[in-house]
Amino acid sequence: MADTVFRFPAPGPDPVTADLDGWKKVEGNPTMKTWVQHTSADGGVISGTWEATPGTWHATYDAYEFVHLMEGEIVITQDGGKPVTVKPGDGFVVEKGFAGTWKIVKPVRKHFCIKL
């Protein structure tokens, strides 16, 4: 029987450092690191850790994402919408179809879970 509980280890030494698909820098020169630490048995869900430095991306989403923000501050603004500020301890969801900006105000570390 496969294990049905997975505990995240500390992120490893080899993150993906390329910007995510659908993310374009629009202010500053922010950088990101992504560690995919777990993939569901059916391949439909990935989860892990993400870090980013200050600056702004315009992002488009083709999947659903749940986030728990551990460090930093982000102002997320859907195109044509009102800004939403998230801080350490906040949990939030970004729905499939989102298009808007992620302004990294303070360096960020988050856990994410994405339903592909």
Results as ranks from 00 to 15, higher is better:
A99D: 14
A59M: 12
K103L: 04
A41T: 14
P9K: 13
A10W: 01
I114Y: 01
M1L: 08
V45M: 14
P9R: 11
D3Y: 07
D3S: 15
K24W: 04
V5G: 00
M1K: 01
A10Q: 15
A59L: 06
I114M: 14
D21L: 11
G28I: 02
G72F: 04
V108W: 00
D90R: 09
Y61F: 13
T34I: 11
A2W: 04
P54A: 05
V93K: 07
I76Q: 11
G81N: 00
F8M: 01
P11T: 01
P83Y: 02
I74R: 09
V93C: 10
K106P: 07
F112D: 09
W35L: 07
V84W: 05
Y64N: 09
T34L: 13
M70W: 02
I76F: 04
D42R: 07
I74Y: 05
R7D: 10
A41W: 06
Y64Q: 12
W102P: 00
G97P: 00
V86E: 06
V26R: 09
E51Y: 04
P13Y: 07
Q37L: 14
R7I: 12
P107S: 07
P88D: 07
I76N: 09
Q78D: 07
A52Q: 12
K82E: 15
F98R: 03
E51P: 00
F66R: 08
G22D: 09
V26Q: 09
E51F: 03
E65W: 01
K87S: 11
I46Y: 06
E27G: 02
A2Q: 07
V5E: 07
I76D: 06
L116N: 14
E73Y: 06
L116W: 02
H111R: 10
D19N: 14
K106Q: 15
G89Q: 03
T77M: 11
K103E: 15
P54C: 05
V86A: 08
F112P: 03
P54N: 05
K103A: 15
K96W: 01
E65D: 10
P88G: 06
